[in-house]
Design a protein around this nucleic acid. Sequence first.
DNA 1: ATGGCTGTTATCCG
DNA 2: CCGGATAACAGCCA
Length: 286
Amino acid sequence: MPELPEVEVLVRHLAPILPGRTVEQISILRPKVVYPDTPQTLATALMGQTFRQVRRRAKYLLFELSGSRQSPTNSTLLIGHLGMTGRMYLQPRDQPLPKHTAVVLHLGTELFLYEDTRYFGRLNLDVGALQSLGPEPLEAHFTAETLRDSLQRSNQAIKIRLLDQTVVAGMGNIYASESLFRAGISPRRPARKVDLAAAGRLVIAIQDVLQEAIQFGSTVPLGFAGTGRHNGLFYYGQAAGAVGDYAERLRVYDRAGLPCVHCATPIRRCVQAARSTYWCPRCQPR
DNA sequence: ATGGCTGTTATCCG
DNA sequence: CCGGATAACAGCCA
């Protein structure tokens, strides 16, 4: 479920309920998800530690834990990434574990579960991945100038550049197409041809798209039941009580051949860097 | 039923 | 250095 908005919604869900809980036992069912840590080092680092804070950076979840006396010298940063299909949530201790459970943190009467059908995600202590992240798109330092500067020396298509986490931290495949549509920029335009004015429109479009997705996600009850495209929580969710259909909020993504919501021209699909891109050839000229 | 597709990213190769 | 291809894995869909 993971682009920046989905991670943000999850962080907001966990931030009020995780702090204060203490790790009493750890089960690592899929060792690859803790790489480059080993199950032993991760277990040793977390055992007896208490959750203090939950934050987000790009698509990463940051869990701060510390010993019972909350001394800063005794603190641990646990880092999570959901990959393509990861989920993290609390469940009662006596309920059966889902099929693709990767890690379980035992927290008294509840379990903190990391479940991931494709096992592309991570839960570990490796801060290395955070080092090369670019600007947070929803913060003030993400401006037309900074975006243009990071695009200026590349011949690559703008859509591909947007997926680079050093350019926009947290951007993903769906919202890259959506942002370009709202900014009226073709995904195939060479990055170096995005001038300051276009970069400015793109900054606004990115912020609007991400904020709206966060807002919508906040209205969806976090029920985590079901799998697949039509039951998944965030992308195509029709979760009980959800306000509206998520797919309706996407103006171009997965809409190949359907009429553009602005001009009725059929939406096109192409493949860039092995990822699907969707755009309106009329509203998004090169 | 087989092949193509999927929200991510690390790594390899030219 | 840059950019494209591939791999990691499981499931859904035509």
